[in-house]
Design a protein around this nucleic acid. Structure first.
Lengths: 228, 228
DNA sequence: TCAAAAGTGTTCGTGCTACACCCATGC
DNA sequence: GCATGGGTGTAGCACGAACACTTTTGA
């Protein structure tokens, strides 16, 4: 009896599976993504989301985690499968189907690593992307839409924030992702009724204004809750 | 310079891409999925969602459409990518990553085709699945969850209904997918304010009760709307 | 004392929920 | 005439939206 592999080798050429990870962070009041600059033609000088081929002995999820970790050094952050891009001509090198993910990481404490495989790594505002390789502009667009939807019915913004934060910082995250202003009093009222966060008891001092209460998330694990 | 294909052949074994389609319909007040009975070991007698390998010259979307059409003869129905299942050991034949889709088709007028590749095709209640091959129980579970979510913020139920239908039939679809009873007056009030459907002017006669107004969807194309 | 952000309540309108009876038809 | 589903309105309540001033600190 033939194995599937033998069947396939006879009948078909193969298609390769890759993952690409859209890595989001919130920095200086902007929503940003991590991109790497490509070395090889035809995309020399173009930028792309971190990613690469999935090896035969690793799951697709695992491959995405690995690419995230390799570029940022972070793990245990929110990472969700986004969509699979399977057009025939999306990669000029061959038939590559990409399973896209997106991740949310807190800003700060991240040391970007470069390597011989690419020329540079940097953060870019979602609204000001450089020339992009492959269909990665599309992938980021889909990721932004998913992120907007998701933060309105889950607690996943915890993954963009440090352990403790002020209510204004939290509101700022919502505002920059949703790309609109929110009413301060209504926001605070709503978010506090959900019991997703609690006071740490400490305050943020040292700024030229009234010190703000610091809050923390009760659970730093994903859960579905109607937020806004 | 090496092509990606050559690189991969040297460095890796390949992984194969397949699609599986969860085909939903509403029949006799039940939510059902179309399954095929498998012929080959080790899954002889087990059932699976229609699907198969993606060929090198077809997009993943196209492959899903094709599997849907081959089993049901329908096209132009709602078909959405669901999730990609990429665990290493999900397929005993080899490394197969499956891009799962789900489709919504109206009941009635569908002739199920069998073939030499499998022994039988049939509809099963989502709540009473037979022994399933691969991870297809999981795939269906994910599909049901997505479907529940999606009908509350889109008009896609149009794809489960015939051209014209009564408000009670429409309500019935929501009830069986959401798996709960809805209030008749509130449902009608809400659905009519959305302007997704209009009266056809005709009525359903010939039944032992007052004839019901027939309605139709204004647009039979997917759109996001807050329904319930 | 001034600038800058923190913190705090009330009013209004909209929309969801709960609920019961008459109507038109086929048998 | 009876059984069966079709069709209709209202009242209470909860929640979201709009809106402005006082407080606390650092410079």
């Amino acid at each position: 009896m033939n194995t599937l592999k033998q069947d396939v080798e006879k009948k078909y050429q193969f298609a390769v599976i890759a993952t690409d990870v859209v890595i989001f962070t919130a920095q200086n009041g902007k929503l940003k993504v991590l991109l790497i600059e490509m070395r090889k033609p035809p995309y020399t000088g173009y930028w792309a989301c971190p990613g690469g081929l999935v090896k035969p002995n690793e799951s697709v999820d695992r491959a995405a985690q690995k690419h995230l970790f390799d570029k940022t050094g972070v793990k245990d952050v929110y990472l969700e499968q986004l969509y699979t891009f399977g057009e025939i001509d999306r990669d000029p090198f061959g038939r590559v189907v990409s399973v896209a993910y997106y991740a949310l990481i807190p800003s700060g404490g991240i040391k970007l690593k470069t390597s011989h495989e690419y020329t540079d790594v940097d953060w870019f505002q979602v609204k000001q992307l450089p020339p992009m390789a492959y269909d990665h502009t599309e992938i980021i667009k889909v990721a932004v839409k998913r992120l907007k939807d998701k933060i309105t019915y889950s607690n996943i913004v915890y993954s963009l924030l440090p352990k403790s934060f002020t209510l204004s910082e939290l509101q700022g995250i919502y505002e920059l992702i949703l790309d609109k202003r929110l009413d301060k009093r209504n926001f605070r009222k709503k978010i506090l009724t959900l019991n997703l966060i609690t006071k740490t008891g400490r305050k943020r001092t040292g700024e030229a204004n009234r010190p703000a209460q610091l809050y923390k998330f009760v659970r730093r694990t994903p859960q579905e809750v109607e937020v806004l």
